[in-house]
Amino acid sequence: MPHDDQLIPLHWRLVYDNPLRSAEDVRGFRMEGDGAVSFPLGRMRLESTRDPNEGQSANLVYWCPFDGPEDAAISWEFWPIREPGLAILFFSARGRGGEDVFDPALAARSGIYDEYHHGDINAFHVSYFRRRWPEERQFHTCNLRKSYGFHLVAQGADPIPGTADAAGPYRMLLVKQGAFVTFAVNGMVLFRWQDDGTTYGPLLGGGKIGFRQMAPLIAEYANLKVYAP
């Protein structure tokens, strides 16, 4: 099984490195929805403060202020703590007119998923640890979607076990290079997709990274790193 280092182009360098160890590390991050951020074990824990029976209103997105480059390898460590739920990473997120995701001219967002795939932004979203609904728990997959729109463009098996058997950290890695997007867990490539820049809209460039969770998932994250040419 390859290591992450074998999946990141050799000449790329580290351009962002955040241990996500304390409140100081997430200064400048932005929460959308009602979520709590804590560091009980020295890594970032995210959870909703709403009743999951409220549906989409109980979900959250936590944006990193770093503006990722057009070509980037994004790695982070993941621990599932409580399920059911679902985790997503948004990347290459910008306003549909090229604006920063934090631009106040964009429509307000509150964690409701429609606001992210049919709102004012374009983005990729990779969903993993998909355990929210019974059908997701019966057959585990990781999905890559592209927006604007709700386009499912790639899918692969999810190797992460349920919380009863999980023994993280699980090393998550996304590599966006030109028209290609590759996703791997613990060095195992789950899918590699080529965007033709037409079928699902133009190629996406750089932009913000955001952690999304569907309630009642509790999960922890550490060592967010971004590499670029």
Rank of each mutant, 00 (worst) to 15 (best):
N143W: 05
A157M: 04
D114L: 14
H118G: 14
T163G: 00
T141E: 08
D158F: 02
T163C: 01
P159V: 01
S110A: 14
H151K: 03
E115R: 06
H140L: 04
S147A: 11
R132Q: 14
D158N: 00
P169A: 06
Y128E: 03
H118D: 15
C142A: 07
H140C: 04
A154I: 01
G111P: 14
A108Y: 12
N122S: 15
A154C: 04
V153T: 11
P159Y: 01
Y116D: 02
A123G: 10
R130A: 03
E135D: 13
S147M: 10
N122F: 07
H118V: 12
H117V: 08
E136F: 09
P169N: 04
C142L: 01
L152T: 08
V126R: 04
P159R: 00
E135A: 09
P134H: 02
W133D: 13
H151V: 09
I112P: 06
H140N: 06
G168F: 03
L144P: 07
G111V: 15
F139K: 05
F150S: 09
Y116P: 08
R130P: 09
L144Y: 06
L152Y: 06
R131T: 09
F129Y: 12
A123N: 15
R130K: 07
F139E: 05
A123L: 10
D165T: 05
A123Y: 13
Y170S: 13
D120I: 09
Y128V: 11
S110D: 15
E136Q: 15
S147W: 02
Y170V: 05
I121R: 10
R137A: 06
D158C: 03
T163Y: 00
G149Q: 04
L152P: 04
F139A: 13
S127T: 13
C142I: 03
A154T: 02
V126P: 05
D114I: 06
A164K: 02
G111L: 05
P159L: 02
A123Q: 12
H125M: 09
P159N: 01
G149I: 06
F150D: 08
D114N: 11
G111R: 06
W133L: 12
Y116E: 03
E115T: 09
G168Y: 10
A154Y: 00
D165K: 05
G162S: 00
N143I: 11
F150T: 01
F124M: 11
G156P: 03
K146I: 09
G149S: 11
L144W: 10
Y128I: 12
L144T: 06
A123F: 10
G168Q: 12
Y116L: 08
G149V: 08
H140P: 06
H151G: 02
S127M: 13
Y148E: 11
R130N: 10
A108K: 15
H118C: 13
N143H: 12
F124Y: 15
I160C: 00
G162N: 01
D114P: 11
A166F: 02
A154H: 01
I121S: 09
P161C: 00
A157I: 00
Y116G: 07
R137D: 13
Y148P: 15
A167W: 07
